[in-house]
Design a protein around this nucleic acid. Structure first.
Length: 296
DNA sequence: AACTCGTGGTA
DNA sequence: TTACCAAGAGT
C-alpha cells in the first residue's frame, strides 16, 4: 500500500497527474509570488475559504508587498485591512510576525522550519506549508483537507477525527514521498484533491484519480459513525458581539465614543465582556474620555 | 485537553 | 431553516 522507496506510489502518481491538469490558478501559486505572498495567503486561509480570501489578499499585497512594509504600519491598519475574513487576531499575529521577520531575519521570510514555527501565528501546519510551498522542502503538510484524504484513502473511514492527532501526523509522514521535489508536489496536490474532489459533504468520487485504490470506496463508502460533531453556534455568542464592535471600529476613521459602541449589542453584560476581551487581545485600544479605536 | 476565536456560503 | 463547513493557532 505505502511506498517507502521514494518513488511515487499508486497513490502519488495519479494525484500528481490529476493536480497538473486540474489545479486552480491562485495568485500565491504563481511562480514569482514569493514566500511573503505564500505566508500572507496561509494566514488568511486558516479557517477561511479561498473565495473569500482572494480580494483581501490582493489588496493586502498591493499595500504591503514586503514584511517590512507591514511592520512599519500600526497594527490597527492590519486589523482594518483584514476586513471581514474573520478571526481578526490572525491580522494582529501576521503584523507581529512581520515585525519579527524584520527584527530577526533581515526582512526575509525564513526558510527554516523551526524559525517559521517560532513566528507569531505560525503553528505546525503553517510552518510546514510555507516551507513546502514557498521553498520546495519536504514536510508533511497536514490540514483538514489532507486529513480527510488520508482518512478515506488509507484508513477507509468517511471522516477524519474531529481534531488532529499524532496518528494523523504519522500517517501523513509515512505517505510522504522521499524525494524532496516530489514531496512538495504531493503536499499541494493532496491538499487540492481534498479541496476539489474529496470534499467533506458530497465527495465527487466519480472524478477522483485514486478511487480504484481508495480504502473507503473499496469498503463501500460507509457513512461516518463517530461521535457527533459539535455545531458551531454563532448567533448570540460573544464572538458575534465582538464582531459587531470591531466592525464599527474598522469603519471609523476617528476614535469612537463608548456610547456609540453601546448601540451595537443589546445585552450590557455580554457587551462589556466582549469589549474587555477585544482590549485584552490587543484588537482595540482604549483612549481617554471613554473612546476607543483600532490599536495605533 | 478542551475551549475560544468570525464570517458567510451551501445543502 | 438549521446545521455543517472552511489551507488552525493559542491558551
Amino acid at each position: 500500500m505505502l511506498d517507502h522507496s521514494g518513488s511515487p506510489s499508486a497513490l502519488h502518481n495519479p494525484v500528481l497527474t490529476w493536480y497538473d491538469a486540474n489545479k486552480r490558478v491562485l495568485p500565491w501559486r504563481e511562480p514569482g509570488a514569493g514566500a511573503w505572498a505564500v505566508m500572507v495567503s496561509e494566514f488568511m486561509l486558516q479557517q477561511t475559504p479561498v473565495n473569500r480570501v482572494l480580494p483581501a489578499y490582493q489588496r493586502w499585497l498591493e499595500r504591503w508587498p514586503t514584511p517590512a512594509d507591514l511592520a512599519a504600519e500600526a497594527p490597527g491598519e492590519a486589523v482594518r485591512a483584514w476586513d471581514r475574513l474573520g478571526y481578526p487576531r490572525r491580522a494582529l499575529r501576521l503584523h507581529a510576525a512581520a515585525q519579527a521577520i524584520v527584527d530577526r531575519h533581515g526582512g526575509e521570510v525564513p526558510d527554516d522550519h523551526a524559525a517559521l514555527l517560532a513566528l507569531p501565528g505560525v503553528g505546525t501546519y503553517t510552518a510546514a506549508a510555507i516551507a513546502s510551498f514557498a521553498f520546495g522542502q519536504r514536510h508533511a503538510v497536514v490540514d483538514t483537507n489532507v486529513r480527510r484524504v488520508l482518512a478515506r484513502s488509507l484508513t477507509g473511514v468517511a471522516q477524519p477525527t474531529i481534531s488532529p492527532t499524532v496518528a494523523d501526523q504519522r500517517l501523513a509522514v509515512s505517505a510522504l514521498p522521499t524525494d524532496e521535489t516530489t514531496a512538495a508536489r504531493w503536499a499541494v496536490a493532496s491538499m487540492e484533491l481534498g479541496a476539489l474532489i474529496c470534499t467533506a459533504r458530497t465527495p465527487n468520487c466519480a472524478d477522483c484519480p485514486i478511487r480504484s485504490d481508495c480504502a473507503w470506496v473499496l469498503a463501500g463508502s460507509p457513512p461516518y459513525d463517530g461521535p457527533p460533531r459539535r455545531g458551531q453556534t454563532y448567533e448570540g455568542t460573544d464572538r458575534q458581539a465582538r464582531g459587531r464592535l470591531l466592525a464599527v471600529l474598522r469603519a471609523a476613521t476617528t476614535p469612537v465614543p463608548k456610547s456609540t459602541l453601546d448601540t451595537t449589542w443589546p445585552h450590557a453584560r455580554q457587551r462589556e465582556r466582549a469589549l474587555d476581551g477585544l482590549v485584552a487581545d490587543g484588537l482595540v485600544e482604549p483612549l481617554a474620555n471613554a473612546r476607543y479605536r483600532l490599536p495605533g
